[in-house]
């Protein structure tokens, strides 16, 4: 199996403070990985750094995606290579509808023009998977969306943009049980339709129920402290993170 994402010795800081201290992580094409860890461990930082967030500075190590070193690349270039990040708090952008934004994003990441009719069809199919009211397509991007609708809109973008790697940053946080199920069905549909890879950052195992997890990583204090198969999730769920964070972090 080919390695899609290879992170080596990654050190990341923000405002003079180092958050990640040498992370190694590899994801093969088609695999589903889960990252768990206590609050403030650096999980979201890792996801954002892979997407190229300007909030963080890479101070060491490298990120290789699909054979290319992308450590210094801007987020738009990474998006065009096939990386997608589902935001914890998606930003509201008035003045452009979800539908027309997503159409231009689609054209940017695929480099192809798409006819309006074909796009609308694709969009409405994806919205159906997520039980989204079609009226949201014509509303301002995330503007006035509830927390749940924003998360659904992120997964909608995932379904339309069909990236090679989707990083889901606490997509389940703040959702009720039904919404988690819907979002989870959307993630499953992405997986089935594209065979893409997933990096799921989560506290919650509910979102993982419909998915087959290949590998689990536990992050604490900016380091990967444990790795294993899906069984590690159950272990953490029952035992918590205490055994991983004793000592320096707390």
């Amino acid at each position: 199996m080919s390695e899609l994402l290879k992170i080596t010795g990654l050190c990341v800081g923000a405002e003079d403070k180092e958050i990640l201290h040498g992370v190694d992580l590899g994801i093969n094409a088609g695999e589903t990985h889960v990252i768990m860890g206590p609050n403030g461990a650096g999980k979201s930082t890792l996801g954002s750094a892979v997407m190229g967030s300007p909030e963080y500075t890479v101070t060491g190590g490298s990120i290789v995606f699909d054979g290319a070193d992308i450590t210094g690349e801007t987020p738009d270039k990474r998006a065009r290579r096939g990386i997608f990040l589902s935001f914890q708090n998606p930003v509201e952008i008035p003045g452009i509808t979800l539908s027309s934004f997503l159409r231009s994003a689609y054209e940017q990441v695929t480099g192809e023009r798409i006819k309006l009719f074909a796009f609308k069809k694709m969009l409405s199919e994806a919205m159906e998977v997520l039980n989204m009211d079609p009226a949201y397509a014509d509303r301002g991007l995330n503007v006035g969306f509830s927390g749940g609708e924003k998360k659904k809109a992120e997964i909608l973008q995932l379904l339309v943009l069909r990236p090679k790697l989707a990083i889901l940053d606490e997509t389940d946080s703040g959702l009720d049980v039904d919404a988690v199920k819907t979002v989870s069905a959307g993630i499953k549909a992405y997986k089935e339709q594209t065979g893409g890879s997933l990096l799921i950052i989560t506290h919650n195992t509910k979102i993982l129920e419909a998915l087959t997890v290949d590998r689990t990583h536990i992050i604490a204090d900016g380091r990967i402290v444990a790795e294993g198969g899906p069984e590690l999730i159950d272990e953490v769920t029952s035992g918590g993170f205490d055994k991983y964070v004793s000592g320096s972090a707390l």
């Binding site: 997407m51 190229g52 967030s53 300007p54 909030e55 801007t74 987020p75 738009d76 990474r78 998006a79 065009r80 997608f84 990040l85 935001f87 998606p90 930003v91 952008i93 934004f101 231009s104 994003a105 940017q108 990441v109 973008q157 943009l161």
Partner: peptide
């Protein structure tokens, strides 16, 4: 202009 909003849009393939 919010850096976060710019990052969000760039993460969807739009240049700066």
């Amino acid at each position: 202009i919010s850096d976060e909003a710019v990052f969000y849009l760039m993460s969807r393939g739009l240049d700066e």
